[in-house]
Design a protein around this nucleic acid. Sequence first.
DNA 1: ATGGCTTACAAAGTAAGA
Length: 273
Amino acid sequence: MKFTLATWNINSVRIRLQHIKRFVGKYRPDILCLQEIKCANESFPIEYFRALGFSHIELNGQAAYHGVATLSRLPMTRVAARDFNGSGHARHLAVRLGAPDSQSVVLHNFYVPAGGDVPDVKANPKFAQKLAYLQAMERWCKKQTNKQNIRAILVGDLNIAPLESDVWSHKQLLRVVSHTPVEVAHLDAVRQAHDWVDVMRQHIPPEEKLFTWWSYRARDFRKSNRGRRLDHVWVTPALRNAAVSLRVADEVRGWKRPSDHAPVVTNFDLKRS
DNA sequence: ATGGCTTACAAAGTAAGA
């Protein structure tokens, strides 16, 4: 099975419909994982996506904040929508691609908490909640059995830029939430707990700068280029060779009134795994 | 630039993003 998968923190799905149409027209993704849809399930523009060809739609939304959606041209079934840290936030959705046999793949769509401003669990409850969320993800990963045979893809806005080359200035961001050593250690623990493979860094060397998010506050995001790699594509070892190509669609960040995140587009060929 | 912007919301200023 071959398919194109895109993950994109859309920062309000309802205000970004024209961008979605333009992006889908250009990249023809078979599966689209959105984060920060910022609407309840009943407010999600389902018909708009059906008209774009996404006949399979699974939602985990809430009013105003957070929320994730997975849209597909290919058959899929809902597996779970977990609340990893008991916050009541809509931040996760899992679907199964294909019939539930040994060749099917589970796709996880995540929106990890941003964590607020101050990287101190005592002074900032949001930072504590972010670390708790990552610990719950790690526990869940550890609990899985027969991990070498699990066929799974994990994508989304993980809100952490782990490598020095994942931020515009390692030194200046060491005490900025998203790149602090404690967050990076927590994310590494999640990854190692399931031997997840960092697909973006399989395709783009770790020495090379790679960003998926640029602040709205820069006058010219390309000129200042103070970006971070907050969005990720991971696969289990069984799918280690399944991603044939990948790119960050950073031109989308330059469209008028964009999301502050760019989509990440991956082409999969499951025969290669 | 220690935030210059953007979004949602029983709509004017809050809260949140990161």
